[in-house]
Amino acid sequence: MKKIVAPDYGLGETVKSHAAAIKVAIKEAILPQTVTSHYPGERRRMPDCFRGYLRFDPEMCISCFQCSFICPANAIGMREAPDNRYYPTIDYGKCIFCYFCLDSCPGGALKPTKVHDVAYNDVDEMLTPTCDMIDMPEIIREDERYVEYKIDEHDLSLERVKGLDDLAVELPELEKISMVSVCVAPENCLSCRVCEEVCESGAITSALDGDEIRMTIDTTTCNGCGLCVKECSMQVLRLVRREI
């Protein structure tokens, strides 16, 4: 263990350290190393991975509910759209910007933006319905420049660049892991049809075969959302990789 010994000041050291403190103050008063960025006149440029408001692309959404399930703050509520599919809505009054939803989204339907400086005058307005999440939101911007932190071996300096920082971010395309639902033990199936009812893509269908109801999964239309696997009370369904 490296031991720290507290300094013991005699008169000489006292005067010297007073002088050192005053020296720093004078130096900074004359040539300060100011690091202030002048928001709202300018804004810090955030890295592309910055977690701000979310955008949503309904084309990519497979209505798997995973964003809603994973949300630690229960900020994402699925809302039934006119086309009877469930899409996410975000309540920014709860959202903690952890991006667990974005990391969970198997289809890549959720997209990041760098929008983060927002003020609402009504708490009820903070719920953002699906239809508002598709385009970039518009915020009041008074900035004319953006500030970049330049850190080199010696110090930090601020570089100011004229122009507006683009707040939209395009992530590299998600390498999708395509899954498909299969029934591993059809003999245990109760034919309760929960899987059919929960299936958004209509891949699971039931047909009357004599006295029995037979369930079939159409692997080409199945989008691998996994809801049927989760809902199946007999746990006879599994998500497996789609064979290519």
């Binding site: 900074e28 008063a29 300060p32 190393q33 100011t34 690091v35 202030t36």
Partner: peptide
């Protein structure tokens, strides 16, 4: 302003930049 300068800040400004 002076103390702000010593502290690497700006101090009051936007009211009359």
């Amino acid at each position: 302003k002076l103390v702000a300068r010593m502290q690497w800040r700006v101090g009051p400004r936007e009211i009359l930049p």
